[in-house]
C-alpha cells in the first residue's frame, strides 16, 4: 500500500513527560515523524502538537488509535483531506557577497520574506508559508551558499465554516 503524508493536530495535557510519551510511541513502534511543533493553546492546561507523519492507510489508522490510547491525549485530528490553513517559518542564513545581495533581496521579496539580520558577508532571512514554498526558496538560495537553516515545522488549524 502506498505511503502518504498526513498532517495531524493533537491536543494533549500540558504536563511534563507528555511529549516523551508521544515521541516514544513513534520510535517504539517504528512510525515516522517528519516534523513536529508543540506549544500551549488558549487553555494553558492543554498543548497542541502539529505533526507531519507518513505511512500506509493501515499505519495511519494505527497511529491515530495509538495516540488516542495515551491517557494524556485529548483529541487527534487528521487534517489531511480537510479544509485547513497551515504555515511554517524558516530562518535561513545565506552567504551574501556584494555582487549577490541584490539578487537575494529580489528572491526574498518575491516570496514575501524579510531580512532579519545583515552582515558584511551574509543575510538571515525569514521565510513563511507552506513546506513547498519554503523548499522553493531554499532551492533558489542554494547557489549562493546556505550556511544554516532553522525551521519551525508545520503548524495548522482547521478552517471554520464561513
Amino acid at each position: 500500500m502506498s505511503e502518504k503524508k498526513h498532517l495531524l493536530s493533537i491536543l494533549v495535557d500540558n504536563e511534563p513527560g507528555v511529549l516523551s510519551r508521544i515521541t516514544g510511541l513513534f520510535s517504539g513502534r517504528g512510525y515516522n515523524i517528519e516534523s513536529l511543533s508543540v506549544a500551549e493553546t488558549v487553555d494553558p492546561g492543554i498543548s497542541r502538537i502539529t505533526m507531519v507523519t507518513k505511512g500506509s492507510p493501515m499505519i495511519i489508522e494505527q497511529i491515530q488509535k495509538q495516540l488516542n490510547k495515551l491517557i494524556n491525549v485529548l483529541k487527534v485530528i487528521d487534517l489531511t483531506g480537510t479544509q485547513y490553513v497551515q504555515r511554517e517559518m524558516a530562518l535561513v542564513k545565506v552567504n551574501a557577497r556584494a555582487d549577490h545581495r541584490a539578487e537575494i533581496l529580489r528572491i526574498t521579496d518575491i516570496f514575501r520574506g524579510q531580512v532579519v539580520d545583515v552582515g558584511m558577508e551574509h543575510f538571515t532571512l525569514k521565510i513563511e508559508g507552506d513546506a513547498e514554498k519554503i523548499e522553493a526558496v531554499l532551492n533558489l538560495l542554494k547557489p549562493f551558499g546556505i550556511r544554516e537553516i532553522a525551521r519551525t515545522g508545520c503548524v495548522a488549524l482547521p478552517r471554520e465554516n464561513r
Partner: peptide, 10 residues
C-alpha cells in the same frame, strides 16, 4: 481496545 482492531489483519 480500538488499537487491537485491524492492527495485523484486515
Amino acid at each position: 481496545d480500538p488499537t487491537s482492531i485491524q492492527k495485523n489483519v484486515p
